[in-house]
């Protein structure tokens, strides 16, 4: 049985990854999960300099989901390299560094810095953050800006480049195509969907930041639909995520067109969920006489 898949020139031993921001820097979950078993570890989003993040409350639960407004809190690239990467180096699992910036220049610089480091095997750029030089409009919601920032990062790195798409757009297929045209090796989707929740007693927003990103099983049908639409628009691999809680969900994403998948919010609910998903995919393949997991990719019958 073959579970391996390729994301550009990056070879994964199985299609199951962790979603950025839900698995810390790997260490936090290493007592529950043998990191060697994972397809890849995607670390919490990094910026050139540390970020403090938003004031609390930062998270609230919603029906079958949660809203978060962490505010991209992170230790910064340099501290990551010095303090966190050595731990991840001991495992035979690719490390994918998620990163972001406030400007195109910051994105390029961050990509360049991360590309110099041995044992970072791929980059995932988060384009769901605001652009300082364009009135803080989200990079990933304007096709022109998306093209500009992805092209700039492409020039700055030789590593496999994954662009994490924002779902807060009208035409996700267009955004996937823009990323591909700008040189991305893969797209990952979906990031969280912007949401809001109000406490009717106090009439205040339940998140200090007013709005936050919705994740969890509640968003899964939207994510599956978006993967399906993007799959028909691009040739590069898609990493599917958004509410994956179990192997059946992962398989659904693959049938819609995902080459690999990531578990996010599910890690909070079940710290061993990534391993459970790998086992579940294996059982499904056995039961359905599937010898290569790649047979599932885009195998939706219409």
């Amino acid at each position: 049985m073959n579970l391996s898949v390729n994301i550009g020139k990056l070879k994964l031993k199985n299609p199951v990854m962790t979603a950025s921001g839900t698995f810390g820097y790997g260490e936090e979950y290493s007592e529950f999960v043998d990191l060697n078993r994972l397809g890849a570890v995607v670390v919490k989003g990094l910026s050139l300099t540390p970020r403090e993040g938003n004031p609390p409350p930062r998270i609230i639960e919603t029906p079958a989901g949660m809203l978060n407004a962490i505010g991209l809190q992170n230790i910064g690239i340099e501290v990551f390299i010095k303090d966190k990467l050595p731990f991840l180096r001991q495992f035979h699992t690719p490390v994918i560094a998620n990163f972001f910036g406030d400007t195109v220049e910051e994105y390029s610089e961050a990509a360049k810095r991360l590309s110099d480091i041995e044992d970072i095997h791929g980059l995932e750029m988060n384009i769901s953050c605001p652009n300082k030089h364009a009135g803080w409009i989200i990079f990933g919601t304007d096709p022109k800006v998306t093209f500009e920032v992805v092209s700039a990062v492409r020039r700055a790195t030789h590593l496999p480049l994954i662009v994490k798409l924002s779902p807060n757009v009208t035409d996700i297929a267009l955004m996937a195509k823009v990323a591909e045209d700008a040189g991305a090796d893969a797209v990952s989707m979906i990031n969280t969907i912007t949401g809001m929740s109000i406490d009717i007693k106090t009439r205040r927003p339940r998140l200090a930041n007013m709005t936050g990103g919705l994740s969890g099983p509640t968003i899964k049908p939207i994510a599956v639909r978006m993967v399906y639409e993007a799959y028909r628009a691009v040739k590069i691999p898609i990493i599917g995520m958004g509410g994956i809680m179990k192997a059946e969900d992962a398989i659904e994403f693959m049938l819609a067109g995902a080459t690999a998948v990531a578990a996010g919010t599910a890690n909070f609910v079940n710290p061993t969920v990534t391993i459970d998903i790998i086992h579940g995919i294996e059982s499904f393949m056995k039961e359905n006489s599937i010898v290569d997991v790649k047979e599932l990719i885009g195998a939706l019958r219409c």
């Binding site: 698995f23 810390g24 936090e28 993040g53 609390p56 998270i59 978060n68 962490i70 909070f268």
Partner: peptide, 14 residues
């Protein structure tokens, strides 16, 4: 504080 993961990963409970 509101908490999601309990193990230091989500940075929700600061």
């Amino acid at each position: 504080e509101n908490m999601a993961c309990g193990v230091g990963a989500c940075l929700g409970c600061v």
